[in-house]
């Protein structure tokens, strides 16, 4: 029902693509991250929370339509519907049904309720298309509450030493999750422009975010000692950072579970916080949707696929241009 071609994940019956990486006529978009919602399509369909964010990234002139979770859209006899994926705001799994056969394209997802994105809902299907960014048994997330305790403790310690605290994560998703999760009673919270712009788009949708102050690059006199600054990973090592001196830097990403990438980034702290599934979550999601067939798209595909085959699934790999969370440690090709 779905096939992988040079443009993306294609449904020939309906003549639409899901998360295509080359420009196409009609694109159904799981979520607003750059590797899933790319430039150049004639028509976009995405969850209505993704719409303003995609417009913010690709321009208001694109032809984009919003859809609710659970709403069914028939295209040439094929039924498409969007269901919460729990990855970031507006993220969706796309369910495709034709003559009783059901496929689900999960995009990026996590099972953990982050209190901000609509929580993941398992969608029964025959074929489940999944990422496996963290599809190795070394990835086991701690409860986010514990991670935020660590972050808050670190911030307090830096504050006591008269330092600013810089914490990085993606502009869309992690940035807001950090903003919502940290303890605002400790001190003032600033955001890098890239994150503040996304915050603005989200607030304009009528969604409430905790307060954040934009870091004005022209304000040279500001004293950031004791404050927390949330920034995208790409801001690290640039001159933007200098005005916060003295400061400590931390990265919040699933990759921080491994000592190698943590040391490679040479930051002061790494916090293990991901918007993707860990090993257990991936296995749980696959089990719960009741599928027989699994297609893996990005991440540790060869290892994870072999593991699924041993668990009795008809599992195969399809190569895509999706990236997972690599940009958060500066190792994705598009970051």
């Amino acid at each position: 029902m779905l096939e992988f071609n040079q443009n993306g994940i294609y449904c020939p019956k309906a003549d639409v693509y899901i998360d295509p990486w080359k420009p196409v006529e009609r694109a159904l978009i799981t979520h607003a991250h750059a590797d899933h919602s790319r430039w150049g399509h004639q028509h976009y369909l995405a969850h209505h929370h993704s719409v303003p964010i995609i417009q913010h990234r690709l321009g208001n002139e694109i032809n984009i339509e919003g859809i609710e979770y659970g709403e069914v859209r028939k295209i040439k006899g094929v039924s498409f519907s969007f269901h919460p994926a729990g990855h970031i705001i507006g993220s969706a799994q796309i369910r495709v049904e034709y003559k009783g056969e059901i496929w689900v394209v999960s995009g990026d997802y996590k099972l953990e309720d982050d209190g901000f994105s609509a929580p993941f809902e398992s969608v029964p299907c025959h074929t489940f298309i999944t990422e496996c960014t963290f599809g190795l048994p070394v990835f086991k997330w701690k409860s986010p509450k514990l991670v935020f305790d660590e972050i808050n403790d670190w911030w307090r310690k830096n504050q006591a030493e008269g330092k600013a605290t810089i914490l990085t994560g993606y502009s869309l998703g992690k940035g807001q999750r950090l903003l919502q999760g940290i303890d605002h009673s400790i001190g003032e919270v600033y955001t890098h422009g890239a994150i503040e712009n996304t915050n603005q788009v989200i607030r304009e949708m009528g969604i409430e975010l905790k307060p954040s102050i934009y870091v004005d690059p022209d304000d040279k006199k500001k004293d950031y000692a004791g404050s927390l600054i949330i920034a995208p990973p790409s801001a690290l090592g640039t001159s933007w950072q200098k005005k916060f001196r003295p400061f400590e830097v931390g990265i919040a990403s699933g990759w921080m579970a491994m000592r190698g990438p943590r040391r490679r980034r040479a930051v002061d702290r790494g916090f293990v916080l991901s918007d993707h599934c860990d090993w257990e979550e991936l296995n749980t999601a696959i089990k719960e949707c009741g599928c027989e067939r699994v297609i893996t798209t990005h991440g540790y595909t060869s290892i994870f696929t072999q593991w699924l085959q041993e668990q009795g699934y008809d599992a195969t790999i399809e190569n895509t241009d999706f990236e997972g969370e690599l940009g958060e440690v500066g190792e994705g090709s598009s970051d």
Binding site: L136, P137, V138, M258, G260, I303, W307
Partner: peptide, 11 residues
């Protein structure tokens, strides 16, 4: 899978 994972983790 332990062995393959070890090659990724590198330690």
């Amino acid at each position: 899978i332990f062995e393959d994972t070890y090659h990724v983790v590198g330690d």
